[in-house]
Every structure is written in C-alpha cells, then in structure tokens.
C-alpha cells in the first residue's frame, strides 16, 4: 500500500513537470507583457532592458527552469501587473474560490447522489421523469448562460440576491470567509448554483444509470429473496456498489469545479483565483499564470490520488489484489 502511494506520488510529480513545460511553451503566444508594462513614452532601450531584466529573452525551457528552481523554495516570483509576490496574491484570492467550490461541490454531491438514487428507485414515476427532463438543461446549457439567466431572474427581476461580488467578508487573519455574514451567504447562492449545476446533473445521471445497472444484479435479487427491507436493499446493498464507478467521475468533477470556477467567477465578478487568472491573461502576467496553472495541476493530481485510494476503501476485492500482487 505504501509502495503504491509512493509510486503514485512519483508519477504525479512527473505529470506536474510536463504540465508546467507545456504551459511555459505556450505563454509566448498569449502576448508580450512588455507592451502592457511600459507606457506610451517607452524607448527601444527600455524595452530591451526590461526584457533582459525579466529573463524573457531566454528560451522558454530556461524560463521554466528558473521558475521551477525558485518555485520549489516557495517563491513564485512577482506579479508584473501588481508588483507584489504571486504567493501573497493567490493566498488572498484562494479563500473566495475554495469557499465557492466547496459549496458547489457539496451541493452537486448531495443533491446529485440523492436525486440519482431517487430516480433510479422510482424509475417510472412521474417525479423521476420530470427530474430527468429538467436535468437535461443542466448538462446542455453552458455555465455562463445559466449564470446570466440566474442573475436576470433573481437579481434584476426579483431583486432578491446580489449579482456580483462576495458581499461582506470576515477576515480571520489567514482566511477571509463569506460564511459568517448574511450578505456573504446571499452572495454565495447564485454563483455556487451556477458552478455546481453541471456537475450535479452529471453526477445524478451517472448515479441513476449505475444504480439501475446494480439493481439488476443477482445479489440484489438475492437480498430481496432474503426478505431484507427495501431500504436496506437500496442503500446498503445497491448504493455501495454504485459508488465504485461514481467515485472516479465525481473526483474528477470536483477538480473541474475548481478549474472551471474561472467562468463563474468572471460572470459574477467573484474575487477568486479564477478571476485573477483571467485578468492575468489579459495583462500577460506570466508569474501569476504559471503559479495558477501549477496550483490547479496539483489539485487535480491530488484528487486523482485520493480517488484511487478511495477505491481500496470501498472495494475489498482491490485490497486483496494489491496485497497479493505487490
């Protein structure tokens, strides 16, 4: 087991290095940061000086190496635009994104699994059919459109919820939270629904189809033949077997929630790292872009690792294979 974790971590590091390399090879196509950094009154000498100062005259592999060698020491460089350390900027912005992603993820998981199980058990009921039809909206409408529709309905027409921002936040020193104020909580509602809706419907449809498959299995029939209560058959026997494939997709989707927060944060002007990234692209703020991409990769790779370990926890057959095979 430990050997397996170590091997997976080693693989993960390799993945991260490749992601970084690809990212750096593409930054040159985004634009030239020098244009934005120097004003109208620039001379060619200024441009050349700044280019050398920032190391932008060197090939991207060398730039990448420099980024890595300082990044492993916890130093992600200084933002071209704000002139402040990138780690400080991200630390300021991260709580907003993480709180939004956590609320969306919990919404997507609980409602997704709950409705999935419900529509599987009441397969032919009218409520299931309505839920399934409505869920098509969730999987087919793009996130930004849902966000704009929600803003139009709840902010413009009904004037119930704020259309942008985080509301009032409480500063805990190392973390700013919107959970403790009424305006903060209100501000969370629309963005978290927007962000989580796609994942919620995806998880729901997946749970439903997996559960229907499991309910056809012999051991479910046998559980019924043993006179177990319907609740025990559905939740103890069926749901647990449903979870194995669901965990994979769900894990990746939770990573996607953080990554795709970019769109939701843009629509709602949510002051998180996604919005920071969009602004960084407009300014070609390479240190911020690089740090953000690495952060997202670490998160994806970490979630993948956790998903793989969850399999062992859920499915005893894998535990036995590992013990025998490694």
């Amino acid at each position: 087991m430990l050997a397996y974790i170590i091997r997976r971590v080693a693989q993960s590091i390799l993945v991260l290095l490749v992601v970084g390399l690809v990212a750096f090879s593409m930054f040159r196509f985004v634009g030239d940061p020098i244009d934005n950094m120097l004003g109208q009154e620039r001379t060619q000498a200024d441009i050349d000086r700044l280019r050398i100062e920032l190391g932008l005259d060197q090939p991207f592999v060398v730039q990448y190496y420099k980024f890595l060698s300082t990044a492993v020491q916890g130093n992600f460089g200084v933002s071209y635009r704000q002139g402040r350390p990138v780690s400080t900027i991200i630390a300021e912005r991260a709580p907003a994104t993480l709180e939004l992603a956590a609320v969306s993820g919990i919404l997507a998981l609980t409602i997704g699994i709950g409705l999935g199980v419900f529509t599987a058990i009441r397969r032919d009921g009218w409520a299931s059919n309505i839920i399934m039809s409505v869920s098509l909206i969730g999987v087919s409408l793009p996130t930004f459109l849902i966000g704009i529709l929600l803003i139009y309905l709840f902010s413009v027409e009904l004037d119930m919820l704020p259309s942008f921002g985080r509301g009032e936040v409480v500063d805990l020193g190392w973390w700013t939270t919107g959970f403790l104020t009424e305006s903060g909580l209100k501000a969370l509602i629309l963005p978290s629904i927007t962000l989580g809706l796609y994942q919620m419907t995806l998880i729901m449809r997946l749970v439903r189809s997996e559960m229907l498959e499991v309910l056809r299995q012999d051991y479910i029939r046998f559980a019924r033949a043993r006179g177990l209560k319907e609740r025990a058959v559905n939740f103890r026997h069926a749901l647990k077997n449903t979870m194995v494939p669901v965990i994979t997709v769900t894990g990746l989707q939770l990573g996607a929630i953080i990554a795709f927060a970019i769109i939701t944060e843009t629509v709602f002007q949510w002051p998180g790292v996604g919005l920071l990234f969009i602004n960084a692209i407009q300014f070609v703020d390479i240190p911020v872009m690089a740090a953000y991409l690495m952060l997202i990769s670490v998160m994806f790779v970490g979630i993948n690792l956790i998903v793989d370990l969850l399999y062992f926890w859920v499915d005893p057959r894998l535990r036995a294979d590992r013990a025998g095979g490694h």
Binding site: D218, Y219, A223, L228
Partner: peptide
C-alpha cells in the same frame, strides 16, 4: 409488499443459480 417481504427469507428461502453473483461483493 411488506407482508410478502416478511415471508421471504423467514418462511421461504431461495437459492440462486450463480453463486459468483448471488453474494454482494462489498459486504
């Protein structure tokens, strides 16, 4: 349904064809 459930297992037991798929693999 509930009365019948009480009879299944208690009054009438059942053995299925394939023992490889009759038992829940996760329990």
């Amino acid at each position: 349904r509930d009365q019948m459930r009480r009879i299944r297992g208690k009054e009438i037991g059942m053995v299925f064809q394939d023992p490889l798929t009759s038992l829940n693999p996760l329990l």
